[in-house]
Amino acid sequence: MKPLVDAAEKAGVYVILDLQPGRTDFLTQAKLYRSLLARPHVGLALDPEWRLKPKQKHLRQIGSVKASEINRTASWLAALTRTKHLPQKLFVVHQFSTSMIKDRKRLDTGHAELATVIHVDGSGPQGAKQGTWSVLRKNAPPVDGWGWKNFVDEDEPMLSVPQTWRQVRPRPDLITYQ
């Protein structure tokens, strides 16, 4: 992974490490990438869909995480950023279902070292995606931004960046493709 992060740095590209930990907690997995996260152009994303309980299986169940686990990871990343005197880091939390983040209203989004973004990453027809966007924005904790994911093979139709910019309201702060 380091050669890719090096190449991104050379090209002036920001990297977001996307953690899908399975049965490991997010903080344990994030610490494995400490040396990469200590670099100014590397942020972190947490994907609760892939945070499974002992008997759950990938692609059979949708994982979930407690807000407290996200908060511990955010606190660790904020401390690393502060200690290393790094610029503010992007801290992305993926979500496409209200059940993915337990006690979401308790998310600690107050770390000045982090720009916290809830990344709405559901796939499928645009009407369903717009519905998910609306539901997840209701009663959300205060965050620095909102993200929208376009799935190349799963969205119907898949929106281009200009289409996303015109059709998604309020406009997302982060648009990604997978």
Results as ranks from 00 to 15, higher is better:
H58M: 11
Y33H: 15
R39F: 11
I16A: 09
R106W: 02
H111T: 07
A74M: 02
Q163F: 08
W76H: 04
R171L: 02
L32F: 08
F151D: 04
L4K: 11
K102L: 13
I118S: 00
Q61F: 08
A67F: 05
R34A: 14
A128Y: 04
D121R: 02
F96E: 08
L59D: 13
A30K: 01
V15Q: 11
W148Q: 00
E154V: 08
F91L: 09
Q95A: 00
K84I: 09
K149N: 05
G124E: 01
E69C: 06
P170C: 03
M158K: 12
V13A: 11
A79G: 10
S99R: 14
A7E: 13
N71R: 10
A67S: 15
R82F: 08
W133G: 03
R104C: 06
E9D: 11
L46F: 03
H85G: 14
G110H: 06
E156P: 01
V135S: 03
T109E: 05
P87I: 09
L159T: 01
T132L: 06
L107C: 04
Q88C: 12
K31W: 04
V143A: 03
D144V: 08
Q126E: 10
G147K: 03
Q20N: 08
R23P: 08
A79C: 09
R60M: 12
G110M: 01
P48E: 06
D173L: 02
H58E: 09
S64H: 14
K102S: 09
A11M: 10
T132D: 00
P141H: 02
Y14G: 02
R34P: 06
V15C: 10
Y177S: 14
L86M: 12
R106I: 00
V117I: 14
A45D: 08
Q130M: 10
S160L: 05
W165E: 13
A78V: 14
T109P: 15
S99Q: 13
V42P: 00
D108G: 08
A112P: 15
V65W: 00
D155I: 05
R171S: 10
D103V: 03
G145W: 07
V13H: 03
Q95R: 03
A30V: 03
L80R: 14
M158D: 11
T81Q: 11
W76Y: 07
P142V: 09
L80G: 09
S75E: 12
P172V: 03
I118V: 10
T98D: 07
D47T: 00
A8L: 05
A38C: 12
T24L: 13
F26H: 03
W148C: 02
A45F: 01
P170G: 08
P125F: 07
F26R: 01
V93A: 00
G110E: 03
A74S: 05
L52Q: 05
A11C: 13
V93I: 15
H41R: 15
F26M: 09
I175H: 04
S99A: 15
T28K: 10
L80Q: 11
P125E: 10
